[in-house]
């Protein structure tokens, strides 16, 4: 009796098969095969690269040296701290402007695109057009508008706004569609009309979503504004980064600009988190 341990009582089931947690499914098999194929392709790619006599470790060491120079010896050569600050401000303004214009347009289009607030025909047509706009990358939109507006800030503002609208209409309309139908019904039953319901029920209920999507888009637009400064000559810190790295070949200056951008990005993130917290608890 004393020596009896759990081992003796619960005997291992040797003869039985493994018990499956999930039943076999076709979809699961396809996913697994795809992953295996991708892994195989990756390995094959690395083996058959044309390395042009550069050894892996030498290249790695070179890259690390460049990174070290960039980030530990960062300092200004062609402009001053205050000038850099001014350029970051320009980039931020570009992001802010496109986000605000985009948000205002998207708010109205989003209302008409929401299934529960609009007719199926209008909703579907807006959603389809928006999907096409969204499928084309921001840079491409800017370059398309540069054909008529010329390379520069005007093309950047129009192109970035365009893509922002594509993104925000989808986000907003989905937020509106999440709203409980009963709330709309209750106000309708009391005689409220469409605009009253929108401003009194739909927007107050979805405000946190709207703000967080808009802020997320602002962060994306900030990154896009830097790229536009380099690619489309829209000015701002992006253009300086482009000049430092491609024209002056100055790693140290590229480093200091990167730090600047990083600092702003972190600041934006902190503001976003605070704002969301405030909205959630606010009366």
């Amino acid at each position: 009796m004393k020596d009896l341990s759990t081992k003796d009582i619960i005997k291992p089931l040797k003869t039985e098969k493994k018990i499956k947690v999930k039943p076999f499914s076709k979809a699961g098999l396809v996913i697994r095969l795809t992953l295996i194929a991708l892994a195989g392709l990756t390995i094959y790619g690395f083996i058959t690269f044309d390395y042009k006599n550069i050894t892996f470790f030498e290249a790695l060491a070179g890259s690390l040296t460049n990174f070290r120079v960039m980030f530990t010896e960062a300092h200004f050569n062609h402009f001053t701290f205050s000038e850099a600050l001014y350029q970051v401000l320009i980039t931020l303004c570009l992001a802010l402007l496109t986000t605000i214009i985009g948000a205002i347009i998207s708010l109205f289009l989003g209302l008409f695109a929401a299934q529960n607030l609009s007719s199926p025909l209008l909703s579907n047509s807006i959603k389809n057009v928006i999907a096409i706009i969204r499928a084309v990358p921001t840079v491409l939109w800017v370059l398309i508008f540069a054909v008529s507006a010329g390379l520069g800030s005007v093309a950047a503002v129009i192109g970035m706004t365009f893509h922002s609208v594509g993104y925000l209409v989808k986000a907003y309309s989905e937020a509106f569609e999440e709203l409980d139908h009963g709330v709309i019904e209750a106000l309708q039953a009391g005689g409220a009309n469409w605009w009253q319901i929108v401003w009194q029920a739909v927007i107050p209920s979805t405000l946190t979503y709207l703000v967080s999507w808009t802020f997320l888009r602002f962060e994306i637009n900030f990154a896009a504004a830097i790229a536009m400064g380099a690619a489309a000559g829209a000015g701002g810190i992006g253009f300086d980064l482009f000049m430092a790295s491609n024209f002056y070949l100055d790693l140290r200056e590229a480093g200091v600009i990167t730090f600047f951008i990083l600092a702003v990005a972190i600041l934006l993130e902190i503001i976003a988190v605070r704002l969301k917290k405030y909205l959630k608890t606010a009366q």
Partner: peptide, 21 residues
């Protein structure tokens, strides 16, 4: 719209705007 003001309605799930006072 005018007619509906003469009929009040209440619901199982109250259907209030939760985020408002």
């Amino acid at each position: 719209r005018q007619f509906r003001t003469k009929i009040g309605m209440i619901f199982q799930h109250y259907n209030l705007v939760d985020r408002l006072t």
